[in-house]
């Protein structure tokens, strides 16, 4: 077995590992960023509402179809009388918190990171294929083929999510939220 086969296989594995790390890192960064924006609020997934640090509950107020978001809002009267309002919101209609309804990668930046991850995996496939064409002995195929199969599966899985999930970015045309109650 030539050094080129071993190097090719090792580098392809490195690229696949890189794609996994990038995927994890971008998801983690997004979650962290999301946590900052909802800092001080706890989400109750079972009953689908948020609780602020003053104990007020925020219930779903509307579903924004354009941005694929659920908007949760606290009662205006409670917020306007709250001593922590200055550090919480400028709105006189009560504090609002949003939650994306689509799975990751639902944001435009998430799609960018996913796009780079897909590219890394496609590159691994391409590189393995070139090495495979240049080295066609049984031992070479035995080393390269399983990694190529893994890379192809990863490419399919990552790309499928990328195509299916919307970008979550509003169009250039004006966009409005739709109230849940009016639907």
């Amino acid at each position: 077995m030539s050094a080129e086969v071993l190097l090719g296989a090792a580098y392809a594995a490195l690229l696949l590992g890189g794609a996994v790390v990038l995927e994890w890192l971008s998801r983690h960064t997004h979650n962290r960023s999301q946590a900052y924006r909802t800092s001080g609020f706890d989400y109750d997934a079972q009953h689908d509402f948020w609780v602020c640090h003053q104990g007020e509950q925020l219930w779903p107020a509307e579903f924004d179809r354009e941005r694929r978001l659920v908007r949760y809002r606290a009662r205006a009267a409670v917020c306007n009388a709250c001593p922590a309002k200055r550090d919480c919101t400028d709105s006189t209609g009560g504090r609002e918190v949003t939650r994306a309804v689509d799975p990751w990668p639902h944001s435009e930046a998430g799609r960018f990171h996913r796009g780079i991850a897909v590219m890394l995996v496609v590159l691994a496939c391409f590189e393995l294929s070139v090495v495979l064409v240049r080295n066609r002995e049984a031992a070479d195929i035995a080393v390269l083929a399983p990694i190529l199969a893994l890379a192809a599966a990863m490419a399919w899985w990552l790309a499928r999510d990328l195509v299916r999930t919307p970008s979550g970015f509003p169009d250039v045309k004006p966009a409005h939220g739709n109230r849940i109650g009016s639907e």
């Binding site: 960023s33 900052y36 924006r37 924004d64 941005r67 978001l69 908007r71 949003t98 944001s107 435009e108 930046a109 979550g168 970015f169 509003p170 169009d171 250039v172 045309k173 004006p174 966009a175 409005h176 939220g177």
Partner: peptide
């Protein structure tokens, strides 16, 4: 975080 504010992706605005 800064850019997310900049893009203001989730804000409810009349103009995108």
């Amino acid at each position: 975080s800064f850019l997310q504010l900049g893009a203001n992706q989730e804000a409810k605005s009349d103009a995108a």
